[in-house]
Structure formats: C-alpha cells, structure tokens
Design a protein around this nucleic acid. Structure first.
Length: 809
RNA sequence: GCGGCUGUGGCGAAAUUGGCAGACGCGCCGGACUUAGAAUCCGGUGGGCAACCUUGCAGGUUCAAGUCCUGUCAGCCGCACCA
C-alpha cells in the first residue's frame, strides 16, 4: 500500500466530512481526551510529540468506536521565554517566529492523522485568548486571590526575570541553569496557599498516578505542630513553629531567620556590628549554598535573650541562615538534644544540650530525634510522643502562649515576569488611586509589537511609552500600566476550559457548556509538570468554582504520563549530546501509521526508554501481512462451501474473542504494546485457519471484518483504506468496536500443569467442572505421574482450578 | 540525608496480581518456494550433554515467589536545613 497517497486521501476525507469534529448534539455521551498542548519552540514535531499524541489518539479513536462522542482538541502554549530568547539571538520577532512555527506544526500534526478537532484550536498568544487570561487575573484580583507584595523573590540573572518557586530547580533557573539569586521586589502573587488543604484532599478523589499525587502532596508539604510564643527581655514577642513541642523543656536557644525584623531591632550595642555583617553576608549567598543541608551551620548571637514560656528559662537569641524566613514564623526554638541541626549548631557555639526525651527501647544517644518519653519536663514527665505533644499544646493554649498550628510548604505563586512575550498584566498604577484594575470592557490590554526586548533587568514593556502611558480608569488622570507580563503557566492553567467553547467572544467560556464537557476524562502528558501546570490548573478550577463559574472540583479526572523516549545512548535527547532522533525520515519511509504503531509496540507506554528502530520493520511487515490476508479473504465465496462449525471454527472464535477482550482491556489501561501483540496473535490465528482445507468462509470473513475494526485505532489511514476496499461503509470509525462474547471463551477442557512437590512434571487436559477428588483420581492414574508417587503417601493435593495441581509427598 | 520507581534471554518487552517465567516481536538457526537473491510461508530458539539451573544480590514466609517480607547493591526521578 502506498502510504503517502493513502494518508493524504483519508486526511482530506476526514476533514471534508468533519469526521473528527465534536458534535454538540451528542454531548451527553461526551468523552474529553486531552493531550498537553505543544509549546511551539522548534518548527518540527519531535519523537516526544509523536509518543504523546500517537498512542493517545489511538485511545481516543477506540473510545469513539465504543460509542462515545470524543472531544480531542489541540492547541499551542505559545507565549514564553524560548521564543523571546530566540528573538534576542536572531532579531526575529517572537510573534513572527511563533506564528511560523505554529503553522508548520499544525501541518505536521495534521499529517500525523490524529483525530484532533481543529475547529476548537486555541493559541495562547492570540488576543482572543489572552484577553481572557487577563480576565482570569482580574477575577482572581477581585476575589482577593491576586495580590502584590514586596518579598525576597527568585531572580534569574541570565533570563533577567523573577521565577516561581516551582521554576527553581536545585537553586538554578529551570530554563537556563543559571544560579538563582534572591532579590527584594514588589511582585504579583496568586494566593494558591488558600487552597492548600483542598489541593491536598482532592488528590484522594482523582485517578492519577500515585507517584504524581505523592509529588504534589510533598510539594504542598502539610505539617501539623504548635506555635509557641517567646517573650523577649525587651518586651517584644515572637512565635516559633515546631512539630516537636514535646521537646520544649529542652530549649537552650532560639533562632531567628536573618531577614526577621526583630534581628535588627534587638541586636545589642556590642553585637550590632557582627549581626549586621552576618545579615549582609546571608543576603549575598545564593540559594544553592544556603539551602544545602550539608553546609556547616552558621549564625550570630544578637546580644539579647528570650524567655521559655514553660519554665521561665532565659535563652540566648541567635540569627542563623539555616532558618528560613519564608516558612512558618521565620523563627525556631533550638533543642540540641533532639534535633540534628540544633545539635550541630549547639556544638559549634558551645550551647547547652539538655536531654528531655528518653528512648523507650534502649539507650538514649544524643541527638535523639525519634518519639520518646518526656523527662526533665515537670508535670509532663513520663508522657510519650503524640500524647505529650497534645498535653503540652493544651497547656500552652491555657497559658495563652501557644496553639495548635498547621503549616504548608507550598508558597503563593509568583506570576509576574519582567519579560516581553507574555500576556500583559491588566493593571494600571495611578499616582492618586493606586492600583486600579483595567475595566473588563477595556480588555485585552494589547501586547505592543514594536518593543525593545533586549533584557536589562527591567521589563521590556516599561520602555515602550505608547504602551505605558494611559489614563486612570478611576480618576481619569495620567497613569502608567503595569510593565510586567504573566507567567505562561497562567495561560495554560485554564486552556482546557477554553477548548469546548473556543470562539466565545463574550466570556472566556460559557459555564453551561463547560460544566457539561468537563472534567477532562483522560489527560495525557509528561510527568515533569507534576508540581507546576498540574497544580496550577487544579487551583484555577477550584478558584473559578468558588466564583460560581464551574460546578466541578477537579479539572482532570484521570491522568496518564507517557514515558520519555531517550536517545539511543540512553541519555535524554539533546542538541548538546548530539543524540536527537528525528521522526521525519521514519515517517516518510514507513508512513505515519507504522511509525506510531511501532511507538506503541516497541515500548511500555509509561516507561519509555532508549530509542531503537530494531522492530520498526516488523510493524510494517505486520501491516503488509494484514493487507495480503484481507484482500485474499475478501474474494472468498461464502455460502456454498460453508461447513458446520467444528473444532477449528471454535478455536478461531476463541482467538477472536480473546483478542477482543484483551485489546479492549489493554487500551483502557494504555498498555499499547500488549494490545498490538494480541492483534498479531489474532492475525496468526487467522492465517492458521485459512490454511485448513475445509473452512467456513462466511465465518472467516466475519472474523476478518472484526480484525479490521480491532486494528482501526492503531493504524487509522491504513485500516480506513482496507475497509473501503473490503466494501465497508465509510467511516470505519463510525462502526462499533467489537465486543467480546464471553461464552466463546468458555472451554470444556483446560490444560493443567501437574506438579509433584512443587516441581512441574507434566501437563494434562482436564474437563471443566470436575471435583477435586475426580481430578486427583485422573492425575494419580496418569502414566507419567504414577511412577513418581508409587509407594508414597500423598500429604496434600492442591488444585488451582483451570491452572494447576500440586501433589505434596 | 528523606521519599518514590525500576532491575527479567543476545535485544525491545510480557506474566490473568501468589499458580506452567520469557506472551508478542527483533535477531539468529533450519526448511519450503526460487537459476539466484529479495519478499513470502513453515519450524526451531533462556542456559546446561544430563540430573537440573534461571527474574540485580543475600536471606525469609509459603505446597507454590519475578510477584509478599527483611537486608543489600545499581540506575533513574522527586524533595532537600520546612523546624
């Protein structure tokens, strides 16, 4: 079959007949299959795109054939740094390069033959999309979920922009690898922390990979403990957070983060110079160094003391950078006997180590950090672990010096970026009225084309006068626009809501439509988004729900991550390693169907693995084999030479229904490699039957027709063509996927493995429905078994129905 | 350091969830058809002459372990001074 011709023939036909368009009339049978949309960075699809989209499309086609009205849209996550960095290098405007890349990628995606509904396409860099991204921002602002604050933020000195916590990897910028530094800047944040608890709880209700859920749980980082108030000699008070309030009697010092305001306020005359020096040095150290747990602890005594509320002890106050200002209260109590960090710190600065917990099961070696029995803790002596914590918390609460407290590691999401290629933040800064949101009717705030975007640490838009100068919507006076753009993750936090109503000009989406179409039934994409996109999208969904726009809690009911296809050398494909494999030549040699089917057959979908094209020919061979067979059987004359259904027909029918059952199961679980294997087995069975002298041609044709239906999702162009030649009605995808006839799988006999003392000795065919005693009688009488057991006592006779028997002597 | 995942023939990989390890393929070997090759079709293929051995390694539970438990090694991923 000439795949080139066949592919374009059917792609055109599908487009002309709107075969892949979602039909809103059937919305009650909707099935929303979504692949993470592409970033148009390069002009070409790489193997990763194929691996994500090809097999998932087969799944979508399978669902369609099962009778669902499948909605499978595609679009482009088109704003972002790579286009801008590319522009800086080549002077090609990001808008131009992005649009060009999108045009090419659209062609390639269409050539792939996936059933994307292009009528719902979304491009985040277009006005009619980012207008609504800005709308989202305003809604969040209106609902108190977007706010501006000055804070130490992550700054990438190479990209010249701030980064979200999630975009800092090992203290470095996730894009360019440059070490991130801390800067105090006033930035926009989204209050994702308000949803920390629900984001955590919601994970229990969704069908996602456990690994991903665990990553989100860890990222949210809930910890339950106690806040304890310490009063200083000066009368100033501060709180510490601890999960181990059962150790509070062992406090020998307290530590404030260097950024803590009390550090400067309380520093004594003698210590002032040392403290200021230390604080300044901390500010200079970069994140990687500071956050390394291996690093030796440093700190400085600030020359002031605080009172331990449970025993009135006076303890010195230190400033030390192992305490993070951004977590908890930015202050901790130091209990050297029961915390490794505090222990190291105390040893270094000669602070007392006071044991207040003893090991229940043996010698107490300090630092002892597990739960134990309280000692030297007055009325709490003898209490253990959680009980001790509860009692001490209650005691502190009664004193008015503490309370139970839950903390999360999750931080608010920093969304402003000092870059050009993104959605402008729809806010106006008025010298009289302050921060004024752009009125909804004035959206979009257009991103101007002619901008000097060479990065110099200031927002490129700040240098564009025509953009910056505007009137205050409130007082009408001169005012300035916000020069920052939104993190591109904001754009991708709601795109799945836009698809079902992609052309709405009055709203981002019609809630009535979206509430019918969502949640996404199957979302497929890379695991690298676990704590970014997948978390942000959940936050957006919950926020929009609380504003009354949505009536569901989670955007993606079921999630699958495809594995990563590595270079042939086992490393991640990268230009620098020179191990990039392009799909193009394979596609032009073998065709799209063979290539995607090989991706399904040669790898375990969720595992991925190093690229190898060893088996690609085998898939081509398989399809040839199918083609030859189908065309041969097509011309068989039916009725006349029909014979009564005998054993061979029964076997073939078994093979057929076994294939149907297994392939259906395998597709449901994204186990594409075994599904293809079952198809191959079925074709082998068909060939075998065809080789018999006597055969029932009508039955064989029926079985062959089922083969085409089974194969269709895997090799869509190929099967559509054969289906037509077979005489099937267009389109093969409008026919029902075969359903397993369970009765065909019931057999009168099954083969049992016979073990003696757990070692397999022989195999026996046994009829169905025999009692254990009957089985025992037959097995013991078997010629190959009898000599092995003669004269011996059978201690046990185990029967696993339909599978094996084990004779224990 | 903490958490998670993975480890199976020469290769890609399966294994009904504790029940015949290696499905389906690649590769290789043999045969058929061919003047010959390609293509195709049929058969064989974990190791060992054998008894037997075999799922990274060492133990354990069980009639039975790739699967469960304990320890250990290697690789990958995530978090990393979160109090």
């Amino acid at each position: 079959m000439d795949m080139k011709t066949v592919e374009s023939k059917w792609q055109q036909r599908w487009e002309k007949t709107k075969e892949n368009c979602f039909n809103k009339k059937n919305a009650d049978k909707k099935f929303y299959v979504l692949e993470m949309f592409s970033y148009p960075s390069g002009a070409k699809l790489h193997i990763g795109h194929w691996y994500n989209y090809g097999p998932t499309d087969s799944y979508a086609r399978f669902k369609k054939m099962q009778g669902y009205e499948v909605f499978q849209p595609m679009g482009f996550d088109a704003f972002g740094l790579p286009a801008e960095n590319y522009a800086i290098k080549t002077k090609i405007h990001p808008k131009d390069s992005t649009e060009k890349n999108i045009a090419t990628m659209e062609q390639q995606l269409k050539a792939m033959g996936a059933m994307f509904d292009w009528s719902a396409e979304v491009k985040t860099c277009e006005e009619d999309y980012y207008k609504w991204t800005q709308w989202m921002f305003l809604k969040l602002f209106e609902n108190g979920l977007a706010y501006r604050k000055e804070a130490p933020v992550n700054w990438c000195p190479s990209c010249n922009t701030v980064l979200a916590n999630e975009q800092v990897v090992d203290g470095c910028c996730e894009r360019c690898g440059t070490p991130v530094i801390k800067k105090d800047l006033t930035q926009w944040f989204f209050k994702i922390t308000q949803y920390a608890e629900e984001l955590l709880q919601g994970l229990d209700k969704i069908d996602w990979p456990e690994k991903t859920k665990l990553m989100q749980r860890n990222w949210i980082g809930k910890s339950t403990g106690c806040e304890i108030e310490f009063e200083c000699e000066s009368g100033d008070k501060f709180k510490v957070f601890t999960t181990r309030c059962d150790t509070v009697f062992g406090v020998s010092y307290v530590v404030l983060a260097p950024e803590h305001p009390l550090v400067k306020k309380l520093a004594s005359e003698e210590q002032r110079e040392a403290v200021e020096k230390y604080v300044a040095e901390t500010a200079k150290t970069n994140e990687i160094e500071r956050l390394s747990s291996a690093r030796e602890k440093t700190g400085v005594f600030i020359g002031h003391y605080a009172i331990n509320p449970v025993n009135g002890e006076k303890v010195p106050i230190y400033a030390a950078d192992y305490v993070l200002y951004s977590y908890g209260t930015g202050a901790v109590m130091g209990v050297p006997a029961h915390d490794e960090r505090d222990f190291m710190f105390a040893k270094k600065y000669g602070l007392p180590v006071k044991k207040v917990i003893e090991n229940k099961n043996g010698e107490t070696v300090l630092p002892f950090c597990e739960d134990g029995i309280c000692v030297n803790s007055l009325q709490f002596d003898g209490r253990f672990g959680e009980d001790a914590r509860t009692e001490i918390t209650n005691y502190l609460t009664k004193l008015g010096k503490g309370q139970r407290k839950v903390n999360y590691r999750l931080r608010d999401w920093l969304v402003s970026r000092q870059r050009y290629w993104g959605a402008p933040i729809p806010v106006i800064h008025c010298p009289h009225c302050g921060i004024v949101p752009v009125p909804y009717k004035d959206l979009p705030v257009r991103l101007p084309y002619n901008v000097e975007f060479e990065p110099d640490g200031k927002s490129p838009l700040a240098k564009c006068d025509e953009f910056m100068h505007t009137k205050c919507p409130h007082c009408g006076g001169d005012a300035l626009r916000d020069p920052d753009t939104l993190d591109t993750f904001v754009c991708s936090s709601w795109y799945y809501l836009r698809y079902p109503d992609a052309h709405n000009t009055k709203m981002p989406f019609d809630p009535e439509i979206v509430n019918k179409m969502l949640p996404v039934d199957k979302y497929v994409g890379g695991a690298e988004h676990a704590c970014m996109h997948l978390l942000y999208a959940r936050f957006f969904t919950k926020a929009l729900r609380d504003m009354g726009y949505l009536n569901f809690d989670e955007p993606f009911q079921s999630l699958v991550h495809q594995g990563v296809i590595l270079g042939p050398d086992g490393n991640r494909m990268s230009k620098s390693k020179g191990n990039i494999v392009s799909p193009d030549e394979y596609v032009s040699t073998y065709g799209a169907d063979v290539f995607r089917m090989y991706l399904m057959f040669g790898f375990s979908y969720t595992e991925g693995g190093p690229w190898s094209d060893d088996g690609i020919k085998s898939v081509a061979k398989f399809l040839d084999r199918v083609e030859r067979f189908v065309l041969k059987v097509k011309d068989y004359k039916s009725a006349k030479d029909s014979v009564a259904a005998g054993a061979n027909e029964k076997d073939l029918n078994y093979a057929r229904n076994y294939a149907i059952r297994q392939i259906t199961r395998d597709l449901e679980s994204f186990s594409f490699n075994t599904a293809v294997a079952r198809l191959m087995e079925y074709v082998n069975a068909l060939y075998k039957y065809d080789g018999f002298a006597e055969k029932d041609n009508a039955f064989l044709k029926e079985c062959t027709r089922d083969l085409l239906l089974l194969l269709a999702p895997f090799a869509p162009h190929f099967t559509e063509e054969l289906w037509e030649q077979w005489g099937g009605k267009y389109s093969v995808f409008d026919h029902k996927y075969p359903v397993c006839d369970e009765s065909a799988l019931e057999r009168e006999e099954s083969e049992y493995a016979v073990q003696v003392n757990s070692k397999i000795k022989t195999k026996i065919m046994l009829a169905k429905g025999l009692s254990n005693d009957e089985i025992q009688a037959i097995v013991l009488a078997d010629e190959s078994i009898r000599p092995l057991i003669e004269g011996k006592v059978i201690r046990k006779f185990i029967v696993v129905p339909g599978r094996l028997v084990n004779i224990i002597l």
